[in-house]
Design a protein around this nucleic acid. Structure first.
Lengths: 195, 195, 195, 195
DNA sequence: GATGAATGAGGGTTCATTCAT
DNA sequence: GATGAATGAACCCTCATTCAT
């Protein structure tokens, strides 16, 4: 006979574990669906893909923005944390900027539903947009400022502009071999570079 | 009793005049609505704005893509025709390319619903996309090739890629002062330029 | 060959006739459904009962309140017009009041969904409530005032209070032989009467 | 190791105490919620307000009617017991009837969600309705009969009819100064009175 | 040809009720 | 016993598209 406390604890924990697993399942399903059908995909589709009821989805993510934000939060955070680290590790601020842009691009290209969500004019994604901007703009600005201070790039390009530009370049279906956002982004950086 | 022929002819001609006027009205209405509500605006809205019935709109433009294409065909054509002319007029191919890109950008920025339509993954706009590409890609390619041949820009950037990149940069709401697609497009060209 | 004008007119009229018939059908269906399922009955039910599509119902009556109002407007108007007429016809103001109350009661009892709608606290029926009050309160007030002036009833009871009281008494299912709103309303008038 | 019996007993007893407390909490919460959101308030709201789980609520009150009945049982009982007492205390049966009606009215007005519940045509409240009727109708009938026997009121009004009438008059939102159910109920009694 | 009424699929959201923990 | 996560039926509403007039 196990101590009551332990049993209770286990029960409580396992309960949470179930919900957590569901949340995880939902996030995975949403990520997949976002890729194939965009972030405006029918809620029902996501629930079905996750194999849960509609209500379950609503319980975990009351609004669509909540879901989208949750889907991408990890990566947003990882991206934000990489900025200062790269600045410290790399030989030059421009190097760091390049590496960060690459990271950012990878993020957008692989989870490119995000790029679409960010461009959505609807207010539904205002919160996501805000989170995104609040979290990453300062990081990008730090890299840009350092590169400007080091005389490596020309001034005049804001972090919001650069990020949104990169985001835009990454948007849309990416199955056309004639279009590679990375090549254009590289040109963008080349255009920024001072001799 | 008037000659049948004459009556028929008159009727046919006046019908045609009516139909043409209707088509014109619809195109104008659609252009306006696209600007304010995007190319995904409800069909009824356009019909209402034009003051015609829904059926009339469908008769003239069976699919949404037909309508969008028609709305922008004039400008697409103008853009296409400008390519060779600029190449002849300007001092250098790169100059001509720059001027053409500016023209293209103006087109997309002012009728920016178009940029969104072009990116739309839905098949609904496949026809528009195709027309757009078929008409403009060769023009842009001519300019790029000339600039490469003149040693002004580095090779490796295709016309489709450049155009879609510019299109992407122009997409989305444009009321944010922090984001100016023209600045980024300028950087893109700078990145393309050889010293 | 009929004159064009006439043909056009006939066409326009017959078109309208169709729509009018549908509207009529919808009103009848709604009235029936309101009786059996209350004014909060599912919209689909009403559309189905009328044998039309959902969209048709929405076209004719964009909001539920529009539908409810339309269903009862005729009777409301008839009731409003009866007030002054009764005052002129009957021997005494109290007589007229009694007759009008009877009319009003008949209206509520037969279409008793209305009584429920009027009591609904939701804002959805604010418009109906307002129409109802605006239209009938003055009529009832005229009758009450006349009876007071004639010394037939005691003062102190407002028209809104009386009407809402009668409405309340008429509310609810009426298949219980133990409850007859008319008897209570008669008592109410008796209570109002001065010796 | 403590005797098993004792432990079991203690546990069982504490469980019962717990359950009783929970029931009490639920009743209070429900009463509050009924006032603000009506007796049709979402079940979750009540559980949340009580700070217990949904399952707990369902365990104690399997149907909504059970809950509503329980919430009002005390007052229903008090009302039932007041009848004979008033008949004994007051000078005349009519006096007693008036006092009882006042009591009954106070009950309905203060807990006015009840009046709505009683009118609800749904079967959900059949049980409540029944309990309500079974308990109070005889009491009211006793008062009416006594008043009739004393020659104070005219015969012909049943206790069910009177009670339901009063209930109806008390229903609906009560924040409109133009409508006071007590005034109408007073008229009703006046109408009942014999000279 | 033009009209716009009708259709109904499609997507969003709430909430009563069940049941695993 | 208590918990609250999960379920899904039931509503609501919009709009692309068809077709009778």
């Amino acid at each position: 006979m196990p101590p009551a406390d332990q049993a209770k604890g286990a029960s409580a924990r396992s309960k949470r574990a179930d919900a957590v697993r569901n949340q995880r399942t939902l996030l995975d399903a949403a990520a997949e669906v976002f890729v194939t059908s965009g972030v405006d995909a029918p809620i029902r589709l996501i629930a079905a893909r996750a194999g849960v009821g509609l209500g379950t989805l609503y319980r975990h993510f009351p609004t669509r923005a909540d879901l989208v934000t949750a889907v991408y939060r990890h990566q947003i955070d990882a991206c934000a944390e990489a900025g200062p680290r790269l600045l410290a590790e790399r030989d030059s601020p421009f190097d760091a900027l390049g590496a960060w842009v690459e990271l950012f691009t990878d993020f957008l290209v692989t989870k490119h539903g995000l790029a679409d969500a960010l461009r959505s004019d609807s207010d539904r994604f205002a919160a996501l947009h805000t989170h995104f901007i609040d979290r990453l703009t300062p990081v990008c600005a730090g890299l840009l400022d350092a590169a400007v201070a080091a005389g490596e790039i020309r001034p005049g390009t804001g972090s919001y502009e650069l990020m949104r530009g990169i985001g835009n370049l990454c948007a849309g279906r990416d199955d056309d071999p004639r279009y590679d956002p990375r090549r254009l982004i590289e040109l963008l950086l080349k255009g920024l570079r001072l001799p």
